[in-house]
C-alpha cells in the first residue's frame, strides 16, 4: 500500500489542470487555423509577430498574475505602461540617456506599486479602488505630459528599436525568391526571460510560495508564520516594476508615445490571466498559463481577421465569446472537482 503511494503520481492540482486545458486549446486552435486558414498561419513569422506585438501585454500579465495569485487586483497596469511610455519619450527627446530612461521606467513602475500597496496593505483600502485611482492618476498624468502623440527622435534609441534577431531557417522565401529571415524583436527576449524568471520566482522561492499562501487563505498564512503584509507588498511592487518594464518595451516596439497607448490593456491582461487559469479569488494560477492565455487571445483575433470577418466589431465580440467559454470552463471544472472531493 505504502509503496504504491510513493510511486503514484498525484492528480493535477487546480492550477495545473486549468493551465493544461489552456495550452491544449491554444495548440488545437492554432493547428485548426493552419489547416483551414493556412496562409500566414503556416509561417513561423506569424507566431513571432504575435510575440513582437504583445511583449508589453505579456509582461504586464505576468505582474498581474502575481498580484492575482496573492488575492489582489491591479487595474492600473495599462495606465502606468502608458505613463511610462510618455515620460520616457519626452525624456529621450529632451536629449536624455537611454540607461537613465530605463531607470526612469522602472522607477515610475515601482513608485506606483509602492504607493498602491501602502494604501492597500497598511491602510486596508480595497485594492480595486486604490488601483482604480492609480489608473486615473496615471492616465491623467499622461495627458498632462502631452496630449499630442510624440515620436522619439533619439539616435541611440533608434538603434535599440530596430535591433532585431534574424533567424534564417525560420524564415521563408518570398515570391521574388529572396529569403526573408524571421525577425524577433529584442523585447521578445526580455519578455520571455521575464516569464521564466517569474515562473522560477513563483515555483521555487519562499516569496513565490508566500504569494500562493496569502491568496489561498490570508488568515491561515498569517498563522503559518508568513509575513502577510510584506508578501503582499512584494507582489504589488513586482507588478509595478513589470508595468515599468512593459512601458519601456512598449516604447521600443512603437517608438512613440500617445495618450491612448495601452488603452484597455489592464482588461486584456486580466483576461489573459483568467484564460491561463488564474483565479481572481487568489491562490491558484501559473505564469506559463498566463503566457499561453495572451497567445490564445491574440490567436483568436488573428483568426477572426483571417476568416474574412472584416467588420470592426467581430474581433471584440469573438474575444468576449472566447472569454465566456474559458470562464465557464473554469467554473465547471472546478465545481466538478469540488464535488468529487466531497464524495471521496
Amino acid at each position: 500500500m505504502k509503496k504504491t503511494n510513493a510511486v503514484r503520481r498525484e492528480p493535477f492540482t487546480d492550477a495545473q489542470l486549468l493551465m493544461t486545458i489552456t495550452i491544449a486549446i491554444f495548440i488545437g486552435m492554432y493547428l485548426l487555423a493552419m489547416i483551414f486558414l493556412g496562409g500566414g498561419f503556416m509561417h513561423p513569422q506569424q507566431v513571432i509577430d504575435m510575440l513582437n506585438d504583445n511583449v508589453s501585454l505579456i509582461v504586464v500579465a505576468c505582474g498581474l498574475t502575481i498580484v492575482m495569485i496573492g488575492g489582489g487586483i491591479d487595474i492600473s497596469v495599462g495606465a502606468v505602461t502608458s505613463l511610462v511610455v510618455m515620460s520616457c519619450v519626452l525624456y529621450l527627446n529632451g536629449g536624455g540617456n537611454i540607461f537613465v530612461a530605463i531607470l526612469l521606467a522602472l522607477g515610475i513602475g515601482l513608485a506606483f506599486g509602492a504607493v498602491h500597496v501602502f494604501l492597500i496593505s497598511y491602510l486596508e483600502i480595497q485594492p480595486f479602488i486604490v488601483t482604480l485611482a492609480g489608473m486615473f492618476f496615471a492616465r491623467g498624468m499622461t495627458t498632462i505630459l502631452s496630449v499630442n502623440p510624440q515620436k522619439v527622435n533619439h539616435e541611440g534609441f533608434a538603434n535599440l528599436r530596430d535591433a532585431k534577431i534574424e533567424i534564417d531557417w525560420l524564415g521563408y522565401t518570398a515570391n521574388n525568391g529572396n529569403l526573408i529571415p524571421a525577425r524577433i524583436e529584442l523585447g521578445v527576449v526580455v519578455a520571455i526571460a521575464i516569464v521564466i524568471l517569474v515562473f522560477i520566482l513563483l515555483k521555487f522561492t519562499r516569496l513565490g510560495r508566500g504569494f500562493y499562501a496569502i491568496g489561498g487563505n490570508q488568515q491561515s498564512a498569517l498563522m503559518l508564520g508568513i509575513n502577510v503584509k510584506r508578501t503582499r507588498f512584494m507582489s504589488y511592487l513586482i507588478c509595478g516594476l513589470l508595468s515599468g518594464i512593459s512601458g519601456f518595451l512598449f516604447m521600443m516596439h512603437t517608438g512613440a508615445g500617445n495618450a491612448t497607448n495601452a488603452a484597455g490593456m489592464e482588461m486584456n491582461a486580466i483576461a489573459s490571466s483568467i484564460i491561463g487559469g488564474t483565479l481572481l479569488t487568489g491562490g491558484v494560477g501559473n505564469v506559463i498559463g498566463t503566457f499561453f492565455g495572451t497567445m490564445t487571445l491574440t490567436t483568436i483575433k488573428k483568426i477572426v481577421v483571417s476568416s474574412g470577418l472584416n467588420q470592426p466589431w467581430w474581433q471584440s465580440i469573438t474575444t468576449g465569446g472566447m472569454l465566456c467559454f474559458f470562464i465557464l470552463l473554469q467554473s465547471v471544472v472546478l465545481s466538478r472537482r469540488a464535488k468529487k472531493k466531497k464524495k471521496t
Binding site: I270, I274, P312, S316, G320, I327, S331, V332
Partner: peptide, 25 residues
C-alpha cells in the same frame, strides 16, 4: 454567470465589458 456558475462578478462582467460596445456598434 455570477449566481449559477459562481463566477466572481468582475470576471463575469468582463465578458460584456470586452464586447458590449462592439455589440452596440
Amino acid at each position: 454567470l455570477v449566481a449559477v456558475f459562481n463566477i466572481q462578478p468582475m470576471i463575469a462582467t468582463l465578458i460584456l465589458y470586452t464586447c458590449g460596445r462592439s455589440i452596440a456598434y
